[in-house]
Write a protein that binds this DNA or RNA. Structure first.
Length: 577
RNA sequence: GGUGAGGUAGCUCAGCUGGUUAGAGCGUCGGACUCAUAAUCCGAAGGUCGGGGGUUCGAGUCCCCCCCUCACUACCA
């Protein structure tokens, strides 16, 4: 038994996430965690909301509530939605927790002791009307290059020219529209990443099993332009972790907070501390997952994220951890995902384009359908497309026809001919031998794909395993043999129902609801059965003996008609209301 | 502009360090079967691997040039 630490990129607090966010980190991390638990490993699967920063403050202001209340509410909304998708984390925390505040301040203090923090005076736009400093992208004005009136301070989206906010003509606040902007000097702390460049490079180079996507993004940051730059870790905001050196004040930094990119990944660790506190466990219970000197040396740590998050997990956060000089667990495998596009275009939170998590469950409440569709089409190798046609195919063909119909035909036939207990008689023959051989190969491949975190390949192998069942039934044809040799048909039926049990176990990482339905129909205890991962096909096909009572389950999946698909396509075309 | 990723059958995608007739699912066509959610199973057709040049006995796979798509570009997190 191994110990597996799993984290999903933290969803930002300001609103409901779309399917692209879901498939890029939360969903695959959940499926992977479920697989590892079923294999008998000890799993700690953590996630949290990322709550600090300017967008949260602005979203709260727009909603007319204090930012703390806004975050508390959105945390509950996001938590419920994820639970609706069957997300199986051990703890879903909040980056605004007391634990994260303390740990962030502590790590900043350690970095300072190590000489890795520098103070830099910079000049930023300040808006007296808004009462805040404005990040570049919250300053708008006319583009000096093309004249576009609503260029943002970081880039003109019309001519794509990169800008400095001071370049803008007629600059004003994107929040209030105020024009009385002034440039103020302000002092900030920088993490001296440049000093850790070679250490980071050596660490990154040692990771041979990272994907091309992840490695190349990491290398780019090390070597782009003048190489790895130091990076500001503080902001002039109210909503965030107050800047302190451990538990001591930080002279000159009064009233400032840590920049959200700095405290958010630290929440991976802090969320484990939240978990321990919520369960009344001692600190050692969570530190054995995170401190290599307190038991975490044998932990395997896998992170899931979209490609936009890769720099933070390959460069910035490791720099924080390594720089502290303390023995915190570093990530072993980073699983990065590309983008999921919506019908050829981009999912967009700001434009309301695509399908959001709340809408998805509203129009199609069976979360297994979403899990299977999204995971079996996950954007692993390249950006990939979500369309309603793909969902319809995944539901109708894979889930309903290949898996659902298999369970249906085998249980119904058995019940009709032999009653609702597994019949006796017959003995395995050549067909069973062939099935066993094919299944053994497939089981090995399936588990290997999960071990390598190859989600699409695992899905494809699972589908092939489902198909083996139909192939077997087709050739064994118990509906024919029953007329002449009922014992032979009984043998086929026993194998068939055992296949249904096996499918429930193998499929659970993808479709936990359907797995539960199968196991309940087969009168099997869900939790123990899921952990009975098959050692080999032969034992899996004889797990349920003659005499075992079962029931015919309701159809596992209901298909989507073309008219239903068309209605969804129409509803979600272009920009949502 | 810079950097990165990608361009493989009608569609969605696999193809590791270069090696026999380039793969899968869906779709299409044909056949078998009738237990089952008009389900299943078998078979077939379908590709000048974005374009051009080069290296090699041999390239989808390596090198160069070009075209197209997308993302990122450090103050969004």
């Amino acid at each position: 038994m191994a110990r597996i630490l799993i984290t999903s990129a933290l969803p930002y607090i300001n609103g409901v996430k779309h399917l692209g966010n879901l498939v890029g980190s939360i969903l695959p991390s959940c499926a992977y965690a479920r697989f590892m638990r079923q294999r008998g490993h000890e799993v700690m699967f953590l996630c949290a909301t990322d709550e600090h920063g300017t967008p949260a403050e602005i979203a709260a202001a727009k909603a007319g509530v204090p930012v703390e209340a806004y975050c508390a509410e959105m945390f509950e909304v996001q938590k419920k939605l994820c639970e609706g998708f069957g997300i199986s984390w051990d703890w879903f925390g909040r980056s605004s927790s007391a634990q994260n505040r303390a740990l962030t301040q502590h790590l900043a203090g350690e970095l300072d002791k190590a000489g890795l923090i520098s103070e830099v005076e910079e000049r930023q736009f300040y808006s007296p009307t808004d009462g805040r400093f404005l990040p570049d992208r919250y300053v708008e004005g006319a583009c000096p290059n093309c004249g576009y009136a609503r260029a943002r301070g970081d880039q003109c989206e019309n001519c794509t020219k990169l800008l400095d906010p001071t370049d803008l003509l007629d600059p004003h606040s994107a929040i209030s529209g105020a024009k009385d902007l002034e440039i103020r000097a302000t002092k900030h702390l920088y993490l001296r990443q440049s000093a850790m460049r070679e250490r980071l490079r050596a660490w990154i180079s040692s990771k041979q099993d990272w994907s091309n996507l992840v490695s190349s993004i990491a290398r780019k940051w090390l070597d782009d332009g003048d190489g790895l730059q130091d990076r500001s870790i503080t902001r002039d905001l109210k909503w965030g972790v107050p800047v302190r050196k451990g538990d001591q004040p930080w002279p000159g930094m009064e009233g400032k907070v840590f920049y959200v990119w700095f405290d958010a990944p630290i929440e991976y660790i802090a969320s484990a501390a939240e978990w321990a506190e919520a369960r009344g466990l001692p600190d050692s219970a969570w530190r054995r997952w995170w401190r290599t000197d307190e038991g975490a040396a044998d932990v395997r740590y896998v992170q899931f994220m979209g490609k936009d998050n890769v720099p933070f997990h390959t460069i910035n956060f490791p720099a924080t951890i390594m720089g502290s000089g303390e023995p915190w667990k570093l990530v072993d495998l980073i699983k990065g995902f590309n983008w999921l596009n919506y019908d050829g275009g981009k999912f967009s939170t700001s434009q309301g384009r695509g399908v959001f998590m709340d809408q998805a469950l509203e129009v199609l409440p069976d979360s297994d359908v979403w899990r299977w569709t999204l995971l079996s089409n996950a954007p692993e190798g390249s950006d990939s497309d979500f369309t309603w046609g793909i969902l319809q195919t995944a539901l109708n063909k894979d889930l309903a026809d290949v898996l659902g119909n298999f369970v249906s035909r085998v249980t119904k036939f058995s019940a009709a001919k032999f009653g609702e207990t597994l019949p006796e008689g017959g003995a395995p023959g050549p067909l069973e031998a062939e099935l066993t051989e094919a299944l053994d190969k497939a089981l090995t491949a399936y588990a290997a794909h999960w071990e390598a975190v190859e989600i699409r390949k695992a899905a494809s192998e699972l589908r092939a395993i489902w198909s083996l069942g139909n192939d077997y039934l087709q050739r064994a044809a118990p509906w024919s043999s029953f007329k002449t040799d009922p014992a032979l048909a009984a043998q086929t039926v026993r194998v068939g129902v055992n296949l249904a049990r096996l499918y429930a176990i193998l499929s659970a990482p993808f479709i936990p609801e359907a797995s539960g339905k199968i196991l309940r129909a087969l009168n099997l205890p869900e939790e123990e059965t899921l952990k009975a991962w098959p050692a080999d096909a032969a034992s899996a096909l004889t797990a349920l003996p003659a005499g075992h009572a079962f029931a015919v389950p309701e159809n596992l999946f209901r298909k989507m008609e073309d008219s239903g698909r068309e209605a969804l396509e129409a509803r979600f075309s272009g920009v949502a209301a």
